[in-house]
Deep mutational scan, measured.
Amino acid sequence: SQVHIGNTTFTFDNPEKAQKYAEKYAKKKGLTVQKNGDVWTVE
């Protein structure tokens, strides 16, 4: 599972961890999370 934030990609061994990280980061920065398969993009 991966989380894309700008030009940075974070890889997680667990989809739940990836989703939590993406949502927490997005909330903190006032951004949105797009999910595509097991990839979350914060923008």
Rank of each mutant, 00 (worst) to 15 (best):
L31H: 05
A22R: 03
F12D: 01
K29H: 15
G30H: 05
T9H: 11
T41E: 10
G6F: 13
T11F: 15
Y25G: 00
T41C: 15
A26W: 03
K29D: 03
Y25M: 10
G37D: 06
E43R: 10
P15Y: 07
S1M: 10
G6M: 09
N14P: 01
D13W: 12
K24T: 13
V39G: 10
A18F: 01
K35E: 01
Y25L: 12
D13I: 08
G37S: 02
T41V: 14
T8K: 15
N36W: 10
V39Q: 07
E23L: 14
F10P: 01
K24D: 14
Q2E: 11
T8R: 15
K35C: 08
Q2S: 09
T11W: 15
H4K: 15
V33Q: 01
A18D: 00
A22G: 01
L31W: 13
Y25F: 10
Q2M: 13
N36M: 13
D38E: 10
E23Y: 11
W40C: 05
V3Y: 02
T32P: 04
K17T: 13
D38M: 09
L31N: 01
A18I: 01
D38Q: 07
V42L: 07
I5K: 03
E23M: 09
G37V: 04
T9M: 13
V42P: 00
H4V: 15
T41Y: 14
Q2N: 07
V33L: 09
W40P: 00
K20G: 06
G6S: 06
K27H: 08
K20C: 11
D38L: 11
H4W: 08
N7K: 12
A18Q: 00
F12L: 04
E16I: 11
D38Y: 10
K17N: 11
D13R: 07
Q19S: 06
Q19I: 06
L31T: 03
W40E: 01
D38V: 07
K28S: 12
T11E: 07
E23Q: 09
P15G: 04
V42N: 01
T41M: 10
P15F: 06
K28L: 12
D13T: 10
L31Y: 12
T8D: 08
F10L: 14
G6K: 09
G30Q: 04
S1Q: 07
K29P: 04
I5T: 03
A18Y: 01
N36R: 12
K24L: 12
I5C: 08
E23V: 06
Q2V: 14
A22N: 00
T11R: 09
G37Q: 05
K29L: 13
I5E: 01
I5Y: 04
G30K: 04
K20H: 10
H4C: 15
W40Y: 10
T8E: 10
S1W: 15
K17M: 13
V42Y: 04
T11H: 14
N36S: 11
V3E: 02
K24W: 15
L31A: 05
K27I: 05
V33Y: 06
Q34Y: 14
K28F: 11
T11Y: 15
D13M: 10
Q19A: 12
F12S: 03
E23N: 06
Y25P: 00
G37H: 03
G6R: 10
F10V: 09
A26F: 05
P15L: 07
A18L: 01
E43Q: 12
K17I: 12
P15V: 06
V33M: 08
K24G: 11
S1P: 14
K17Y: 10
V33I: 09
F12E: 01
F10Q: 04
T9E: 04
A26P: 00
V3I: 04
V39L: 07
E23F: 09
K35L: 13
Q2P: 03
T11N: 10
V33T: 03
F12C: 04
D38S: 10
E16F: 10
K17S: 14
E23D: 06
K28H: 08
A22S: 03
G6Q: 06
E16R: 09
S1D: 04
D38A: 08
K20I: 12
N14Y: 06
Y21R: 02
D13Q: 11
T11L: 13
G30P: 02
F10A: 03
T8Q: 14
T9C: 15
E43F: 14
V42A: 02
A22L: 08
A26V: 01
K29Q: 07
E16V: 11
K29T: 09
S1H: 14
K24A: 15
K35W: 09
K17F: 09
T11D: 06
Q19R: 14
E16W: 12
G6I: 05
K20F: 10
D13Y: 09
N14A: 09
V33P: 03
T41G: 01
T32Y: 05
A26H: 01
V39S: 12
Q34C: 14
Y21K: 00
F10E: 01
Y21D: 03
F10M: 10
K35M: 06
S1V: 14
Q2G: 05
N7G: 11
I5P: 01
H4F: 09
Y25I: 11
A26E: 00
A22F: 06
E43L: 14
V42S: 03
F12H: 02
T41K: 06
Q34F: 13
T8S: 11
F10K: 06
I5Q: 02
P15D: 09
Y25R: 02
T11M: 13
V42M: 05
K17H: 12
H4G: 02
D13E: 11
N36Y: 11
Y21P: 00
D13P: 12
E43P: 05
E16T: 08
E16S: 10
K24M: 14
V39M: 11
V39I: 12
V33C: 01
G6E: 08
T8A: 11
K35R: 14
G37N: 06
T32W: 04
P15H: 05
K28G: 07
K17E: 15
A18V: 00
K20P: 02
L31F: 13
K17D: 15
V33S: 02
T8W: 15
E23T: 05
K28V: 10
K27A: 10
G37T: 03
N7F: 12
L31M: 09
T41P: 00
T32E: 05
